[in-house]
Every structure is written in C-alpha cells, then in structure tokens.
C-alpha cells in the first residue's frame, strides 16, 4: 500500500523528530513557573507563620514564666497542632497551593505531610495504613537531618572540639 496521503505527500511512519528536538518544542509550550510571584507569596505567608510562632512563644514565656529555650518545644507543638487542624479541615492544601514554601518550609509543612499521609491511609487500617505510611513524605527530612547531625557530630569529635560550638 503506497504510503501517500490524498494530497500526494509522502508520509513517514513515525515522527521525524528526535528527543533533543522534541524537548525544545515541549519547552516552548511549557508555561513558566511564576517564580517572582511565588517568592513574594512565600515571603509574606512564611513571615506571617513565623510571626504567629513568635506570638505563641511570647505567650508561653509570659504566661508560664518560661525562658525562650524552654518555650521552644511547646511552641513547636502548638504550631504542629494548628497545622494538623487545618489539614483536617481540608483547607491546608488550598492555602499551600497559593503560599508554596510559605507554608511548606515552616514546621507546619512537616506536620501537614505527616497528617495528610495518616488521614489518607486510614483506609488501609491503623497498623498497615496509618502506622506504616505516616512518614511517607516526612521520612526523608528526618533521615537526612539525623545523618547530617551524625556526620557533623563525628567531625566535631575528630577535631577534638568536644561539645562546644565553633
């Protein structure tokens, strides 16, 4: 069967484009990420989240007579609780779509990654669903943080700094 269309053009049986060429074409049509707009939104939302954290910390310091070091842990716990509640209400993901790293980088993002995974996998039960999947997204943060801390600790030990910082 002659491989010709009605207009008489010879048709090849495949696209005459290779990967490199195609990536260029695809890039042309790929809408660029609005980096500047996203950074501005991230700045303001991130700043606000930290402001809220600051307010909570000051409240603990004033109300329960804590030092800033003592207030750090309860502050983090409260931020996590707020993030979990917002995740449960189904609004966290909508805020995050707008705010990007503004909600992702603070500890709220960490809590959301665990809570959303726990909620989603409840369908598979508490042990194999919630238990096994809770750290699906947050696991890498913990793993890399711990490994980094370990390496740094070993380096410090080698260099004989003991426990004091540089």
């Amino acid at each position: 069967m002659a491989e010709q269309s009605a207009t008489g053009k010879k048709k090849t049986s495949s696209l005459s484009m290779d990967e490199k060429e195609y990536k260029k074409v695809a890039k042309k049509y790929e809408p660029p990420r609005p980096i500047l707009k996203n950074c501005i939104k991230a700045f303001f939302v991130g700043g606000t989240v930290c402001l809220i954290g600051q307010a909570i910390q000051e409240a603990f310091m004033a109300g329960l007579d804590m030092t800033s070091k003592e207030a750090a842990s309860p502050t983090v716990a409260v931020m996590i609780l707020i993030s979990v509640i917002l995740t449960c209400l189904g609004v966290y993901d909508k805020i995050a779509q707008w705010a990007g790293a503004g909600t992702g980088v603070p500890v709220t993002g960490f809590a959301n990654s665990m809570c959303s995974a726990a909620l989603e996998h409840r369908a598979e039960g508490l042990v194999l669903g919630v238990g096994a999947n809770m750290f699906k997204l947050a696991g890498s943060v913990i793993v890399f943080g711990v490994v980094a801390a370990f390496i740094i600790g070993i380096v410090y030990a080698f260099l004989g700094f003991g426990g004091g910082h540089l």
Partner: peptide, 10 residues
C-alpha cells in the same frame, strides 16, 4: 495524599 500541601506547577 489529597490533603498534602504541595504547589502544583502551571
């Protein structure tokens, strides 16, 4: 997960 707050690209 559906409630995860990740930002989708355009």
């Amino acid at each position: 997960p559906t409630e995860y707050g990740s930002q989708k690209p355009p």
